[in-house]
Write a protein that binds this DNA or RNA. Structure first.
Length: 575
DNA sequence: GCCGTTTTCGGCCCGACTGTTTTCAGTCG
């Protein structure tokens, strides 16, 4: 089993924690964290790069030393330096570092003065009042530690899916916006970058002088606990467990603050370095030459100071956007208004909840030109997938309905199961009557990477194949993707003119952003599809488009930006 | 530990809030 990038990143982060507890040079610590961050966001496997003889020290933030450590991890599955450090510092202290208000210095004191080695031990010491007696600690810190231990026992921290965050954010924004003196309210952070999950929410407001937005914020009905409250920054936890930071920003600094708090950190650092080279300093208040602020009102101003055009939030991950901006080669990202139809939807005939008519009507109201009905095929028994006879019946219904519809056309399709050996769940003479065939893997997720890849490649190699649905089968936070060689899959898709789906269901968002970018670079086009099981779910298109934008996709990379005639030509080109 | 139109040494992003202290260290983002 090859070592995953995330495992290497985790080891480097642990090592950074341990070094901090031992008061190592802070820049050395930072180097490990930077390396961990860079590795975890690489699209390709570091283990594979190594296998192919690539020089890892060419990666950003990886020098000779860390390249050697990665090689050791890939070869042996562990890192001797990490094991040594762990021998000196108990695991419990790493856990304790995650508690609110406890960092390396205090954890080190707890270890040295009280001999704490575990959360359990820390809890006992705090209950006996031993912690408050230590220098730099007090009664409040002790209480906070106890509270946090209790809280974590109940749940533990988790990232929140973008769709869930959206539900929480909307009423909160309305609440904040709906008070006199508030001029603007915006969400920054990973939410604005439309990352598939968010850790916390960063909300920025501007308001008239003297207005106390902070009082209103901490009074919000969903606030469970106020962590801190100041004049310009407050932090609360909502009942859902989501952390929300609110910052009050002076108008003249709004762009600078928006840029700063949108991040990502990986994007901001090189931008700030570019400023330093020009004798400027960028912080959340503006761009400064000496003490004089030279920009700050808008993000455009900030970028202009370092000779860059505006960079869309979805691109700000330090995945080449700064270089592209410098060369004037930024993509014009696909937009929701470019979308002319949806190519994956279900109805009551299988596991959907709306009728054909309802789906057609809703799609028409969205301004779509087409909607593909793609029910499950018979192998998916739990969804009462269609056999040849029921499919034929539905096709007749669609023909009848199309005669009555104006402005939109329903396309006849199927979400056809790929069987274990790569053969298809319905015969070719049935498929040839359809407008499009969406192929999908729903069973046998545990095949080896080689078998899974060949299974799908074989399925692609049939004349009716059009789109591969949810290409990795992942469910965010629930189910890992199945093992598949995506590079090989994409080359195969390019050879046979197949399209990959970006499934817009918020718990799938499959293909992930980095793979969308890989598809684009390979020359494979993407269908952004909702896989809607109801009228409401047709609205999931926005999540798909956001993810597509994070994957650098332009309208020309996405087939459902085509008009009806262009799409028809594409779908019939293969036959 | 990384990095270099300041290149083999000397920098490396920095401000707000809290708690404990009485001028500031630690933590956090």
């Amino acid at each position: 089993m090859p070592v995953h990038n995330s495992e290497i990143a985790e080891m480097f982060n642990q090592l950074a924690d341990l070094l901090e507890i031992e008061s190592a040079n802070q820049y050395r610590v930072r180097a490990y964290r930077t390396a961990a961050r860079n590795i975890s966001t690489l699209p390709q496997s570091v283990a594979e790069m190594l296998e192919q003889g690539e020089d890892l020290s060419s990666l950003p933030g990886i020098g000779k030393d860390l390249a050697g450590k990665i090689a050791e991890i890939v070869e042996t599955g562990s890192l001797s330096q990490l094991e040594e450090q762990k021998g000196r510092i108990p695991d419990g202290l790493l856990e304790a570092m995650k508690l609110e208000g406890l960092g390396p210095k205090r954890v080190s004191i707890l270890h040295g003065e009280l001999g704490i080695t575990s959360i359990e031990g820390l809890k006992k010491a705090a209950e006996k009042g031993k912690v408050r007696e230590l220098e730099g600690f007090g009664a409040k810190t002790e209480q906070k530690i106890l509270r946090d231990i209790e809280r974590r026992g109940a749940g533990g921290e988790k990232r929140t899916k973008l769709s869930v965050a959206e539900e929480v954010v909307k009423p909160l924004l309305e609440y904040l916006d709906d008070s006199d003196g508030v001029k603007s309210v915006d969400v920054a952070g990973s939410y604005r970058r439309r990352q598939e999950t968010v850790g916390d929410l960063d909300i920025l407001v501007t308001c008239t002088k003297g207005h106390n937005i902070m009082d209103r914020f901490v009074d919000y009905e969903d606030v469970d606990r106020v962590v801190s409250k100041g004049n310009t920054r407050s932090t609360v936890f909502l009942r859902t467990g989501l952390q929300v930071d609110l910052r009050v920003i002076p108008q003249g600094s709004y762009g600078a603050a928006l840029h700063y708090f949108t991040g990502s950190k990986a994007h901001s650092i090189p931008v700030r370095k570019m400023a330093v080279k020009k004798g400027l300093k960028i912080n959340e208040y503006g761009v400064f030459r000496g003490k004089k602020r030279v920009a700050g009102k808008s993000e455009e101003e900030i970028y202009a100071q370092v000779d860059l055009p505006y960079i869309e939030p979805e691109l700000r991950e330090n995945r080449g956007e700064i270089e592209a901006a410098r060369k004037g080669e930024l993509p014009t990202l696909v937009d929701l208004k470019d979308i002319h139809g949806d190519l994956h939807a279900h109805t009551k005939a299988t596991d959907g909840r709306s009728s054909l008519q309802e789906m057609a009507q809703a799609a028409k109201e969205k301004g779509y030109a087409y909607l593909a009905i793609t029910e499950h095929s018979k192998h998916v028994t739990v969804a009462q997938g269609l056999d040849a006879q029921r499919l034929a019946q539905q096709m007749k219904e669609i023909d009848r309905l199309n005669e009555d519809l104006s402005g939109i056309v329903l396309l006849k399709g199927i979400e056809l199961d790929i069987l274990e050996d790569g053969s298809l769940d319905l015969p070719h003479d049935v498929l040839k009557e359809l407008d499009l065939v969406v192929l999908a893997v729903h069973y046998k997720f545990k095949l080896s990477e080689k078998k899974q890849t060949e299974r799908i490649l074989r399925a692609m190699d049939n004349p009716y194949f059009t789109i591969l649905a949810h290409p990795t089968g992942r469910m965010i936070g629930e189910r890992e993707p199945y093992q598949v060689d995506l590079e090989r899959l994409m080359r195969g898709a390019k050879d046979c003119g197949c399209v990959l789906e970006l499934n817009a269901q918020p718990e799938r968002l499959d293909l992930a952003d980095v793979y969308c970018k890989m598809a684009k670079e390979t020359g494979v086009r993407i269908a952004v599809s909702t896989d809607a099981h109801s009228v409401r779910e047709l609205g999931f298109m926005r999540f798909g488009v956001w993810q597509a934008r994070r994957g650098w996709l332009e309208a020309a990379d996405v087939i459902n930006t085509l008009n009806r005639e262009e799409l028809h030509k594409l779908l019939h080109a293969k036959k």
